[in-house]
């Protein structure tokens, strides 16, 4: 029971963590990327559709990542080149993805409801022998997909890129004090543009991690995960491992919601609200603590 709950937690965490790692880059460059939700949604549709059409998971994931990065590039051009308000452009990204995915599914697949892609290859679960036989926690240790491993691996990779490379150092300086960064010759524009694209790549992976295991797409299937990821970025305080912990908490909230849906009679819609309540409470606690520590100084 505990092992299986932990397993669900990690599976639910993966899309959030992937998107949040992307959001971390835009956050470090000094911008709040509220378009994560739309980028995830776009990739959720494109990845499973292309995987279904080509019979290749890899091509599917790549196509999803490209579609999400395209939205990210549009966001970058509008907010950086055309000086549009970055929040408004983020909203545009979300609305465009919501409209475009339903439009495309109607046009390409001929239906606007839930689409099951029977031809899409399965995202197989990797079962490590023996580990699964360990009592209580065995279920927690094995049976994950490539996407789950990728999310954890990328967290470590992001940590090294952000804290151990000169690129990471420059990126953080742009976000922290862009005037000083500019004065020593670091290009704000280039770093922010790149950060948008990186956030698109990660959000694209997050969207693929959502639809590929289900081999299905339904309009609005991200259901606020992009926003939850955004809060994970805020709570992670610029550190990929902080983002990981925050994403884990939100994964657990989703797992609670899922488990209760299976074992109790509580209306499912009421349980769907749980992750949002947990996210909101976490954000308030974070803000109160930051507020208090600032007052003490």
């Amino acid at each position: 029971m505990i092992g299986s709950f932990m397993h669900t937690t990690i599976v639910m965490m993966t899309p959030i963590l992937l998107a949040a790692l992307g959001g971390l880059f835009t956050d470090l460059s000094g911008m709040l990327n509220i378009g994560l939700e739309g980028m995830m949604l776009m990739s959720a549709f494109v990845s499973v559709y292309v995987a279904n059409a080509t019979g290749s998971l890899l091509i599917g994931v790549l196509a999803g990542v490209v579609s999400a990065s395209l939205l990210a590039a549009i966001m970058a051009v509008f907010s950086l080149n055309l000086k549009a308000n970055v929040f408004v452009v983020g909203l545009a990204t979300n609305l465009m993805a919501a409209g475009m995915t339903v439009f495309l599914s109607g046009w390409l697949v001929g239906t606007r409801g839930t689409i099951v892609f029977h031809e899409a290859p399965r995202l197989s679960r990797i079962d490590v022998p023996l580990l699964g036989d360990i009592p209580v926690i065995g279920r927690m240790l094995t049976g994950y997909s490539v996407m789950d491993f990728l999310a954890i691996g990328l967290t470590v990779a992001c940590f090294f890129v952000i804290f151990k490379t000169s690129y990471g150092y420059h990126l953080r300086s742009v976000g922290r004090d862009y005037k000083t960064a500019e004065s020593v010759g670091i290009s704000i524009y280039r770093h922010r543009f790149a950060a948008f694209i990186i956030s698109g790549v990660f959000a694209g992976l997050g969207g693929a991690a959502l639809s590929l295991p289900l081999r299905a797409f339904v309009g609005g299937m991200t259901g606020g995960r992009g926003w939850i990821a955004l809060v994970a970025v805020v709570l992670g305080r610029g550190n990929p491992f902080g983002v990981l912990i925050a994403s884990l908490i939100f994964g657990a909230a989703s797992a609670v919601s899922n488990t209760l849906q299976a074992v109790t009679d509580i209306p499912p819609k009421l349980l769907l609200a749980v992750p949002f309540v947990v996210t909101l409470v976490a954000m308030i606690i974070h803000a109160v603590r930051r507020h208090d520590s600032l007052e003490q100084q």
Binding site: F78, K83, A84, N85, A92, L95, M96, A98
Partner: peptide
Amino acid sequence: RIIQASIFYLVTAE
């Protein structure tokens, strides 16, 4: 919805 989203993109593009 696509036209409305396009408006969103463009509307604050100073």
